[in-house]
Amino acid sequence: MAEVATNHPMDEIKNDPRVPAELNNNVFITTLDKLYNWGRKRSMWPMLFGLACCAIEMICTAASRHDLARFGWELMRPSPRQADLMIVSGTVTKKMVPQIVRLYNQMPEPRYVIAMGACATSGGPFKEGYNVVSGIDKFLPVDVYIPGCPPRPEALLHGFIKLQEKIEKQSLRTVSWYRKGEATVVPVPVLGPDLTDLRRAQEIVGRVQANQTEAVQPAA
């Protein structure tokens, strides 16, 4: 077969010099990492999970004009058990964050999180609100942040492509989910007098005792 120089990712595999000429195009040699990543980055199953305004743009991304299916991500699963990717699309409120963390814990590894929009990234325009969490990364590890209020569908697609690039770089030897030991579970925050992150429980106890006499409200 004539050697045609294209940028197609399969070319590298097809024209591997280690394969005898008569087996060319019949036997492919590649690394397990590449094959594994090539497959899974093109068949992400996002969770059907919308929080606020950004969810509308997410739906538009999945609709006919922008067509998420072109990239192999159209299979939105309502159940976290079947999903690889959580798109946090909207404002994360204190009342909602226990559920989001629980959903994340229910997702099987490998799992990814996209923080879509200003609110999911940092709290956005509502950051100062008393019921708003300053970004989902206070609780979950975020892979890709997408700015915008809300991000355009193109921005979401760009975020997806960035996530693909990230997946491509992962190696079976280092990924956490094939390691020994327990999977990391984020403790579900508790709705007390205010949102309580159990990872900070000791600190809260200490500080509350230290502040017992003075007012807990920040100085004006």
Binding site: S134, D194, A201, V208, V216
Partner: peptide
């Protein structure tokens, strides 16, 4: 003071 968007009343013990 809490380095986060939270406030706890005096005497609060999360445990």
């Amino acid at each position: 003071p809490w380095a986060d968007n939270v406030n706890y009343p005096p005497g609060f013990d999360p445990n």
